[in-house]
Amino acid sequence: MLYLELFIQGIIQGSIYALIALGLTLVYGLLRILHVAHAALFTLGGYLGVLVTNATGSLALAMLVAMVVCGVVGMGLYKFAYEPILGSPPFVPLIASIGLFIASEELFRMIFGPYGLSYAVPPLSGQVALFGTFSLRQAEVLVIVLSFAMIAILGWLSLKTRTGIAWRATVADPEIASSFGIDIQKVRYLNFFIGSALAASAGVLVAVLNNLVEPTMGSVPSYKALAIIVLGGLGSVPGTLAASVALGVIESFGTIYAGNFMDRDAIAFAFLILVLMARPQGLLGKA
C-alpha cells in the first residue's frame, strides 16, 4: 500500500513537472533556445490563480485567466526578448533568459510583496476516498485529471489536426515548411502561447496544492525543468513526458528510502547523472 501511495504521489509531482517542462521542450524544439524564463510564467500563473480565485471565488475562472494571460505574456517574451536575438549564438538568448528570470523574481517581490499569498478559502481541500484506507486530496485528484486531459488534448491536436501537422513539420525543417505556405512566425507564437499556458496551469495547481505562492516558487522548477528536458532527450515531447513522470516517481520513493542522506533535488540530479552516463542522448533522444 505504501508503494502505491508513493507511486501516486510521484505521478502527481510528475504531472506538474510535465506541464512545466513541455513548454520548455516546445521552445527548444522550435528555436533551440533554453528558455529559463519559462518558470517565471509558472510563478505568474500561480499568482493569478490565487488573486482571481480570491476576487471571484472561482478556481475554474482563475485557471482560465492565468492560462490566457500567461500565454499572451509568453508570446510577448518571444516577440520582445528572443526574436531580436534569434540570429545570435545560443548563449546569448540563454543569458537573456536567465536575466529575465531573475528580473521576474524581483518584479514579483515588488508587486506582490516578499511573503507570498494564500487562498482566502483554500479550494479543493476535501479528501476523496479511493479504496480501503487510501485517499487523496481533491486538489491532488484535480492535478492528475487536468494534466492528463491537457496533455491528451495537446497530443490529439499535434497528431490529428492540420495545424498540428504543420507545427511538427516546422519543428523538423522550418525552411521547407515555409515553402509550403506555413507562416513560421505564427507557429512560434502558437508555441509560446501553448507552452506558457501549460506552465501557468502548473502554477495554479501548485498554488492549490501548497496553498501558497511566493516570488521564488519558480526557481526550483526552472532548473529542474531543464534537467527533465535533458533527461528526456532535448526537443523530444514523449521523452519529456516520460522523464517528468520518472523523475516524479524516483523523487517520491527516494525521499522515503534515501531521504536521510540526500534531499529531493539531490536525488533528482543523481538520477539525471546516472541516466546520462548510460544514455548521453537522454531517455528518448536521438543519438
Partner: peptide
C-alpha cells in the same frame, strides 16, 4: 528534405497546406 518523423501522408498534407 522530407519531414523524416512525419508519416508519408502527413508530409503530403504539409505540401497541401494552402
Amino acid at each position: 528534405r522530407v519531414f523524416a518523423e512525419l508519416s508519408v501522408e502527413e508530409n503530403l498534407v504539409v505540401g497541401g497546406h494552402t
